[in-house]
Simulated assay, not measured.
Amino acid sequence: MSDRIDASVADIEAFVAVARSSSFTRAAEGLGTSKSNVGKSVQRLEAALGTRLFQRTTRAVRLTEDGETYLMASETALEGLREAGQALAARRAEPIGKVRLDLPAGFGRLLFPALAELRLRHPRLTFELALNDRMSDPVSEGWDIVVRIGDLPNDGEMTVRKLCDLRLGLYASPDYLKQRAEIRSPADLPGHDAIVFRGPTGRLRPWKVADGPHIKELSLNPVLALADGHALVEAAVQGFGITQIHDRVAQPHVDAGRLVHVLPGSDVPGPPVHAMIPLGLKMPAKTRAVLNQIVAYLQRTD
């Protein structure tokens, strides 16, 4: 059995270029190489196929019968390779696959409409969500996007993008407010039932309220302390008392009549919201699409 000599794509491309131009010189110019290299490519191809592809004279280069047969197959094969390359490039550019997001419990639910909108445009995109208020490790836990409210850890392995700013306000259910004394100023707050958030460190988060030009911090004895931001909102909706939550989280409930904004003039600037993405050479198209969608949605609903 004789040794097999495989034809390379480069050799086939050189053959096609010569066949189309009927010239080794013009083929070399079109390929950006030398006439000698084109000649060697054709020779290797002929050796691999065991046949002559061209009839060469001093005046012309013509395809043999075998050359005409191989040209048709070569053009079809090269076109198939080009189409496959384009399909792979489109796949890299199109958002396809699963994106894993770690989101704050209350704030994360606001992003459901944004993700639903994105899936309508890109149905091959899927999501895995974690909704919690703990500080996860984005890199070791394999998250594509981690959204955090407040201060961020110093982490050189992450790319950070600011999503929005929040404001802190006081909210309670209409039923609770009907049953209790009217609240005219921050001085009335200590007499009311407080629902307070317990942070990841275990510390109860005090309320901060604007009282004229000053911002005061109120440490309260809560009727309910919760470490889950979503549960904090639900407790207020159920009438446990007054809670201090972020404006974006509260607004859908205010619009639906489930919560009332208490002392709007006492709202204070809240923490920023950032997205963290594990640092890499290039952000995947699927991750970039989700991040851009979240940013656009928050800007639109601001």
Rank of each mutant, 00 (worst) to 15 (best):
T76G: 08
V99L: 12
V61W: 04
L163E: 06
P123W: 03
M158E: 09
R100W: 03
F112A: 11
E83G: 01
V139Y: 06
P123S: 05
I149K: 05
W143V: 01
L129A: 11
A130V: 13
R134Q: 13
R44C: 04
L163V: 08
L81F: 06
L45G: 04
G106E: 08
V38R: 00
A90P: 01
R134M: 11
R92S: 02
A48F: 00
L115Q: 13
T126D: 13
V139H: 08
R100C: 02
A114H: 10
T57V: 09
I149M: 10
T64W: 09
L118T: 04
M72N: 08
G108P: 05
A93Q: 13
Q86M: 02
A84D: 04
K98R: 15
T126I: 09
T69M: 12
S41M: 04
G106H: 03
V42C: 12
L103K: 13
D144G: 06
S74T: 07
K35I: 09
R91A: 10
G85D: 07
E117D: 15
S41T: 05
F54V: 12
R100T: 06
T57F: 12
E157P: 00
P123M: 06
R119N: 07
P153R: 12
D151K: 01
V160L: 13
R119A: 07
G50N: 04
R119F: 03
N37F: 05
L163H: 09
L101P: 07
A47D: 15
N37P: 01
E65W: 12
A87N: 01
L101D: 06
E117S: 14
R109I: 07
N132Y: 10
R92M: 03
A84T: 01
L101S: 09
D151C: 00
L81S: 03
L118N: 05
R44L: 06
G150Y: 08
A48D: 00
G108K: 05
G108C: 07
G150V: 02
I145T: 00
L88Q: 13
A77M: 10
S140T: 12
L78C: 05
E128P: 05
P123Y: 03
E68K: 12
L118A: 05
Q43N: 10
A114I: 12
L101I: 14
N154E: 10
V38W: 00
R92T: 01
G50K: 02
V146I: 06
Q43I: 12
E79M: 01
A60M: 13
F107R: 00
F54W: 07
G39E: 03
F107H: 03
L118W: 04
N37K: 08
E141L: 14
R82F: 00
G150W: 06
H122G: 03
L163I: 11
F112R: 15
K40R: 12
E117K: 12
K162I: 00
A87F: 00
D102Q: 14
D151E: 07
